[in-house]
Design a protein around this nucleic acid. Structure first.
Lengths: 346, 346
DNA sequence: ATGAAAGCGCTAACAC
DNA sequence: GTGTTAGCGCTTTCAT
């Protein structure tokens, strides 16, 4: 009776003098066709009334919503937009909507977002840099929704598909590079120490030292969080403590950017006095001055990959390699000095 | 029969030996209560079965989805994440989900996203920096979904609520500041020339000149798009054409960042040789070197404001001031020289 | 090629 | 306080 929400399949049917089933068939391009005549007629009034099928109703009828959930720690962190864009582009192409959620690296908020998406009956979820513990995720699997992980691989049984950079090899590469260049005291400034990724990166740092037979000075290892501010702060900290160092490795580009800024602020030249290497290769690395040397993984492509995998799973297809781990590359820009053997590392 | 999607209200009802209505009442905390006994019992089995109400079904029954749509030009453009975060935070607090869409400044894609959200029966839409023309938007209103605009105010009849910075006053302020500082030839590098915001900003630039009685040199006005790359390119362009200038105003911070980088690259010092002012005050402005002077609007707060307005409208409440326009502020950092009268401008 | 009818999971009168 | 009954807008067998 009410003219409210535009119109329904019933109204179209009535106007065209056909049944709802017929209308449904035409809007779905149903294989067992509809007569040319009627199809035309239906299409015409759909156009006239600017009718749009109700996706919710469709969802309850078919029990799939054509929506997927994407949870990241923080949209406004410079690291995530490219990943978000990667999944959105893919999903848009296949007609899926994406519901976004921020976890703020907080397990409770992450759980909240995940559950909220279950309520929305998303067809699948992509969880980025998840901070949930094994137990929650294991429980969560009960909801039986396809789950893709990017940037952190838990136990493989906890997700249907995952992709992550090899953190250990990443920081191993950069640390080795620094060491081979003659640096003996390289500082490591990590982000949130609790996260799996952080620990792996630190592990790479340690391994590089072991490989080179250089003892590790614990006083050279600082931890805080993955922010520019923390980078600044850490530099002040180490400088004020008067410890000597030749180079700085960081847990993220954001940290590195803060580090470089503060180093410069304190009158220390980069890379002449100290070399700095970041981690992630976010876009920002090329706009800062000097452009940052860093460890790179193809985030956008990783996002597209996981999207594709997830979709296959949603469609009940077999995925060949559900869990992938990608080799990071050293990207040498201007916060490190040029060396003759640079090419060996990239 | 199938054990697939967890369970429904019916199953809970059956197990507890009550009617679906009763279960519905408890999950909705329905005012006209349910007996303590039964409530407890229902809650218990809900917990045990990890039942989660189906939001889609709810949506079709109540005809509101508890979702809103947010379309921006590009999530991965540094300008938008803060706005996105603003609306997400607000919506999260009130239990709404947000579906995101990218328009890429493309009217067709924007229309596509908007329509897609209609299909999803979002309860409201926030459109950011919209590029749709008057006609489309006017048509779009037929769908009768609450619409909030940020960053561009069309004819007020085209949205239920809007908020935008005063572009004219913004660039008027910055240009006047530059002129008062003795600059006679200030370049203006704008973004996409078609957009309303671009034109307004340019208008402010012109007005500042008229006010100061300084003729405008058209050769000092360049246009391209809102990117770092274009900033670089524009600098090359103007330098190569050999035109003289004292200062540069830009249509966005991104452009300004490119400008500063390229100026430095070409051996021109900022701000000693030429002063530069950006527009927007995105986070990036403080991480580049030197930190960028710019024109600021409180994006996060604007996003929260529009979210609140939209929600009021969704709830059928009266909004007092649906259309707002906020006064931008000059933020003087280090790409401009210090002056004795700086405080007058901020 | 098309229609009738049941059902998806939920809410909302209206009864008792 | 609780159950019954109709929807909501769609899809999907099963007839015809």
């Amino acid at each position: 009776m009410s003219e409210k929400h535009g119109c329904s399949i019933a109204k179209i049917a009535q106007i065209c003098g056909v049944s709802k089933a017929t209308v449904s068939r035409v809007i779905n391009n149903n294989p067992n066709g509809v007569g040319e005549e009627t199809r035309k007629r239906v299409l015409k009034t759909i156009e006239e009334l600017k009718y749009r099928p109700n996706s919710l109703a469709r969802g309850v009828a078919t029990s799939h919503s054509n929506m997927i959930g994407l949870v990241v720690p923080d949209v406004s962190n410079f690291f995530y937009p490219k990943i978000i864009r990667g999944v959105m582009d893919y999903m848009d192409d296949v007609g899926y909507s994406v519901i976004l959620g921020n976890s703020d690296y907080n397990p409770e908020r992450e759980a909240h977002q995940l559950l909220h998406m279950i309520d929305k009956r998303v067809d699948g979820i992509i969880l980025c840099s998840g901070v949930s513990n094994h137990e929650f995720l294991s429980d969560f699997r009960k909801y039986d929704v396809p789950l893709g992980l990017v940037g952190r691989s838990f136990d493989h049984s906890l997700s249907d598909t995952s992709i992550t950079g090899d953190n250990i090899r990443g920081s191993l590469k950069s640390t080795s590079y620094l060491i081979r260049g003659g640096n003996r005291r390289v500082v490591y400034i990590e982000g949130n120490p609790g996260l799996a990724g952080s620990q792996q990166r630190l592990e790479g740092y340690r391994k590089a030292h072991r490989d080179a037979g250089i003892p590790i000075c614990e006083e050279l290892i600082l931890s805080g969080d993955y922010s520019i501010d923390y980078g600044r702060q850490a530099v002040d900290d180490i400088l004020d403590r008067g410890v000597k160092f030749d180079a700085i490795m960081t847990g993220s580009d954001l940290i590195a950017i803060g580090v470089v800024a503060q180093l410069q602020h304190r009158g220390i030249r980069v890379p002449e006095d100290v070399e700095v290497i970041g981690f992630d290769n976010i876009e920002l690395t090329t706009v800062v001055n000097p452009p940052l040397s860093t460890v790179s993984k193809p985030h956008y492509q990783m996002a597209q990959h996981i999207s594709q995998q997830l979709l296959s799973i949603i469609n009940g297809e077999q995925v060949i390699l559900p869990h992938m781990i990608v080799e990071p590359q050293l990207v040498l820009r201007n916060t490190t000095r040029k060396r003759s053997y640079d090419s060996e590392y990239c």
